[in-house]
């Protein structure tokens, strides 16, 4: 460790080479992983979506037929619309129910904040499959909810209408992604300057108008971020519809999965995936636009 800054200057070439080597070595893992697993992998999906299915891995020729049949067949239009509706409902339900929790965490939790934050985010780290499975058990015909209702005498017959409905999908997904929504909103609420709230109070503003005119606009980026991280996984989900949704709530994720499974039409599945990614892109752009125009002006 006797090398001084001066000797460094006297051998700039060697030092520079070491620096470049370091930077190269440190950049390589990330560059390799993102270019192969993200860029290239998504690139082949895009490529495959313009190919004709001939049973081979990458198909053949060039065609827009996959997109044409996906967009013209009313079946797919229905499923895409249903996916958007269900994902939209789940996103809305998750964000609206999470907001008060984030609000409490940011302004009233006091010394219990760390613990409460941990409690509400812990389910996020448990198995997603098991959480969905738990709902199947709860909602089943001979299941937990029906048997509890029968035992307590609230109903005299099991209610069929729980399982295998779109409502079951919405409830299950909203539960599964609840923890996703709390954190971004909480972070945004943390950024609300306390001085702003105090100033409004001093000027006689009512709590509700403080919330509506100060807190809500400033926390809007968090709300939009929360909406996005809930919307993305729900719009492509195929496990929840399969376990609790029944045939009437097939989502676009289930359709994609089927193309790479039973139906064995990979190019068509790739085209459906591209459509989903375009929808997500549109939602991201809309969220950014909304953030700029209706959100915080800070």
């Amino acid at each position: 460790m006797s090398v001084s800054a001066e000797t460094d200057h006297s051998i700039p070439a060697a030092s520079d080479r070491r620096r470049r080597l370091f930077q190269f070595g440190m950049s390589a893992p990330g560059a390799l992983a993102t270019s192969v697993l993200v860029l290239f992998a998504l690139g082949i999906v895009l490529f495959l979506s313009f190919r004709t299915n001939d049973g081979s891995l990458l198909g053949s020729g060039f065609t827009v037929g996959n997109f044409a049949s996906a967009l013209s067949d009313p079946l797919y239009a229905t499923v895409i619309l249903r996916s958007l509706t269900i994902a939209g409902l789940v996103t809305l339900a998750t964000v609206v129910t999470a907001y008060p929790v984030a609000y409490y965490l940011a302004f009233h939790a006091g010394k219990h904040r760390g613990l409460l934050l941990f409690i509400v985010t812990l389910p996020f780290w448990t198995s997603y499959l098991l959480r969905v499975f738990a709902w199947k058990v709860v909602l089943a015909y001979n299941g937990v909810l029906n048997s509890a209702l029968l035992n307590t005498g609230i109903t005299s017959e099991p209610i069929l209408a729980f399982l295998n409905t779109p409502a079951a999908v919405v409830v299950t997904l909203a539960h599964a992604y609840a923890a996703f929504a709390i954190l971004p909103i909480y972070v945004a609420l943390e950024n609300v300057p306390k001085s702003l709230i105090e100033a409004a109070e001093d000027l006689g503003a009512r709590p509700f108008s403080i919330f509506r005119r100060i807190i809500l606009p400033i926390s809007m980026p968090g709300v939009l971020g929360a909406g996005l991280v809930v919307f993305v996984p729900t719009v492509g989900d195929y496990v929840t519809p399969a376990l609790v949704g029944g045939p009437s709530s097939t989502l676009i994720g289930s359709m994609i999965q089927a193309q790479f499974g039973k139906a064995n039409d990979w190019p068509f599945g790739a085209a459906l995936s591209v459509i989903v990614m375009l929808v997500i892109l549109a939602v991201v752009v809309a969220a950014r636009f909304a953030d700029k125009h209706f959100g915080s002006r800070t």
């Binding site: 697993l37 993200v38 992998a41 082949i44 891995l57 719009v235 994720g253 994609i256 790739a270 995936s273």
Partner: peptide, 29 residues
């Protein structure tokens, strides 16, 4: 470095089913 970092965080915006099929094609290739 900033672009690489954004791309490494990008999978949050890709539904699992698409990550799955994209990598399925990749590993077959």
């Amino acid at each position: 470095s900033r672009i690489i970092s954004s791309m490494a965080r990008l999978p949050i915006l890709i539904p699992g089913v698409i990550v799955g099929i994209a990598l399925l094609i990749l590993v077959n290739l």
